[in-house]
Design a protein around this nucleic acid. Structure first.
Lengths: 345, 345
DNA sequence: GCGCCTTGTGTAAACCTTTTCATAGTTTGT
DNA sequence: ACAAACTATGAAAAGGTTTACACAAGGCGC
């Protein structure tokens, strides 16, 4: 059977015996229509199976209430949890959420940006710093909030964890446990958040008057391999600290792997601390002590700010940064330095 | 500065000195417009920063080229990989992909369904069997293809792995290794795919003339705990087989954990086989022998079928099932039964 | 009983496109 | 050289909605 052409507002009006204006009001501003009329309209809607044609509606109104959340990898656990915070808040305020998946592919990203512009979406939340805004020249975008990773040119409001404070907390925890010689694994300039974690690390070391010579800085890119690699490097250089502070959990797991491969056990021989609190952190053994990303809160904060921008209409409020304080999660990968701790034979 | 009202087709037409009809053609049917004119129009578009108003366009055309992919949990690795297959194929054919995340929440799901209906999306792909279609009465939906898990009332075309064949392959592999007494962990009626895996298991056992008494059926829900639990149960019942076929990889990992907790090593003491080939399967030790979901292929097949339905306009083609044959992935968790294999002391 | 406010409803314009049909100009075939 | 067939363009309708404005009816205070 051919799908019957969907009912329009006019069909409803005819059946209910009213004008289309009244139907429109009955649907979207029920309080403006008499009770009896409302009832007639609702019945007609039931009969026809009418749904407002969103296209026509937003064409007329010049806006939608849809928010696009753009992520490079929707499989990223950081993303999933945050998304739930976003969704709950958004739907409570009458906004719908759509998700886009860029894989950091400029083509794909551009498509989504175009989608946002041409569909007049209400706003967007970015989980990715790299977006080809250049190619958009002239196309006007709705309000944007970026989360986790400040977006490219810093012109957007940003909500994220306080990386500096987190780095400081992690380093302080190691120091409090008695470590004096500590490695920082994953040093890089290319990601702002990692750079800030490093700054936090240095602040804590400075405050504890640990000389630069006792801070073992190892570059890395946040990958598992970079962690394993760092361990090898330090053993080869015979420059092994008693504790490793890693730029993220994945690196930390790599470090633990590398240490285990050399026959050491954690935390007896070495202490390791990560950053992010990814799901794997609890599964490995020993479970990883780390700094937790306040994911849900980041999501909620981001959407609240976005909605404020959307509703406030101000639009030209300057881009701000809202940093959320992370918590230290104590698990089993950190203790006081053991005898092998400083094997500078 | 107030965001200037976005340029419309009329602005472009005025600047280019042509009619709006010509602009429309220049944008969407360039071959229908003279080269010189096209050039003028394109320049005007650049000047104004014009983007087609998708609302007006699809209102006029009565359709969009957007496909919604609906998943209960977008963090599910099954989903992510499949999605990439879908996206590539879809964008090559000029369709855009949006993603929805239901968390199996009927409210949320219904919202998405309404979104699809009211925005006249071109079609949808379902990764979830449970959807509140009842509540939609009368609302007309575009073509739908369900993947991985047949949708509720079976009225949709379904693309998925051949669970029966996969179950058979897994069981046959265990039998070929010499196992005679085998557990099936995760038996349940509530998920069709699991039920079918069980059927495959039974077919293989029947073919090998293994009596029912040597098939140890343990119920479960596919969770990690259910796997651990199963092990405990069997040891308590003193009814331990030499091999475990698990309804999915997560359960299998649970079983391996349970066995490890009791001090056994795999595969020397017991063999374990899973289903799905989740990412963790390679990380645990020993790596898990399993049946791989042909994810990318499922994605591609699903979208191809959907597009055929959309373009074919036929629409009333009967719902079909397309089952894709999975491969057995040999890793380290299965060997011939060892001496402890049948501890019916 | 009269002006006035309130309440409920309808008419018609506007939102921005795509596309049918018509027209004018240009080739092509004989 | 003339009809026929294209080609390139424009005018105008249509798509489904919201909303400003107008209007009618009813209630109120005086």
């Amino acid at each position: 059977m051919a799908a019957k052409p969907t009912a329009t507002i006019e069909d409803v009006a005819r059946i209910a015996g009213v004008s289309i204006a009244t139907v429109s009001r009955a649907v979207h501003n029920p309080e403006k229509v008499a009770k009896a009329t409302r009832k007639k309209v609702n019945e007609a809607i039931l009969v026809t199976g009418y749904t407002t044609n969103a296209m026509a509606r937003s064409l007329r109104m010049g806006r939608t209430n849809i928010i696009l959340v753009l992520a490079p990898d929707i499989g990223d656990p950081n993303f999933t949890t945050t998304l739930i915070g976003i969704e709950n808040e958004a739907r409570a305020r009458g906004h719908a959420i759509l998700i886009g998946h860029t894989q950091n592919d400029p083509e794909r990203s551009l498509d989504y940006l175009r989608y946002v512009a041409s569909h007049k979406l209400a706003g967007m939340i970015l989980f990715t710093g790299r977006l080809p805004f250049e190619s958009l020249e002239g196309i006007s975008l709705p309000p944007v909030v970026s989360a986790f990773e400040p977006a490219g040119d810093n012109s957007f409001t940003y909500v994220g964890v306080d990386d500096r404070a987190g780095g400081r907390k992690a380093a302080e925890h190691l120091l409090a446990a008695g470590h004096r010689r500590v490695a920082f694994v994953g040093d890089t300039l290319s990601r702002m958040s990692y750079r800030r974690r490093r700054e936090g690390f240095d602040q804590a070391m400075d405050a504890a008057r640990i000389p630069e010579s006792d801070r073992v800085i190892v570059p890395g890119d946040g990958s598992l391999e970079s962690g394993r690699h760092a361990v090898e490097l330090l053993f080869i250089r015979d420059d092994v600290p008693s504790a490793f502070m890693c730029v993220n959990d994945i690196t930390a797991i790599g470090v633990m792997n590398g240490l285990a491969a050399r026959g050491y056990t954690i935390p007896q021989d070495f202490s390791v601390i990560g950053f992010d609190d990814v799901p794997q952190a609890t599964f490995i053994s020993p479970p990883l002590t780390t700094i937790r990303q306040p994911r849900n809160l980041i999501g909620r904060t981001a959407i609240v700010r976005l909605l404020a921008m959307i509703e406030g209409e101000a639009g030209d409020a300057p881009a701000e940064e809202e940093l959320i304080m992370p918590d230290l999660i104590l698990r089993g990968s950190v203790t006081s330095p053991g005898p092998i701790g400083r094997p500078n034979s």
